[in-house]
Amino acid sequence: MSIFEILPLKTIIITLLGTCLAGAVCSLIGTFIVRMKLTSLGFCMSHAAFAGSALGLALSLPPLWLALAFSILVAFILGPLADKSRLQPEIILGILFSLTMALGLTFLNFIPDSAMSSTAMSILWGSILGITDLDVIRLAVLTFSVILIIILFFKEFHAIMFDRKMAEASGIATKPFYYLILFLTGITVAFSIKLVGGLLIFALIVNPASCAYQYFYDFRKILLFSPLFGILFSLGGIILSFLLDFPIGSSIAITSSVGFGLSVILSPKRRKG
């Protein structure tokens, strides 16, 4: 029996659209996260969003908004507060990673009935069928906003991605842009968690961007190709998920990891001669 016989066409279109948008926006943000060597931020944000969603379900509050609040809280701790305390971001991320994971698992225990528990599991692993029209609209607005922000402040992001200190020395106020990246990451994770799942969403942030970095020396091309890889891996993940009945998050993590392995092998940057 084909997928078109199981699911209504509208559901398939909504699912594909949501997947493409989540793939594009996560990997676009990933371009910055990978370059800033903050890949642990992906793990940390996704676990924070997972903890927020689980708390929402435990308290019968909207999981998305609590996921958003938790992700933004991580961005706030990592940005302004880390700057004030002058701690290395990697140390803070390491601590927050275990804390958010612990909170997420603890909140899961407080979720009342079994139906809610299955919703909680979909937050962990992602759910293709759980995505609604509103989720797609949110993802579309977010993707458009992220693209617009990158176009408007391309010079500033470009300079910061090369070297934050040199960007500061050239007369760019780097802090607001650094914080902006962190906050956009938080929002992106919170909006995409429903589709990909809290445990593996960082694969969609880190893997496509890491693939794009294997092919190009021009940052503009990486910004262009990273979301294309993101869309490709997300669609590949959907197909794998339908074919083998895997959770969507796991399928995307598998396809994007295979894609990364191939990119390393095919990378012109690693070729000798």
């Binding site: 010079k155 470009h158 960007a167 050239s170 020396y217």
Partner: peptide, 28 residues
């Protein structure tokens, strides 16, 4: 400002012309 020691990762995704132009980004 020209810093003393400046090292760049060999796979760094930036071209020479971009790095030079970046010097003007703050002024632009």
């Amino acid at each position: 400002y020209l810093p003393q020691e400046f090292t760049v990762d060999p796979l760094s995704p930036f071209l020479v012309k971009d790095i030079i132009l970046m010097g003007r980004y703050g002024k632009i």
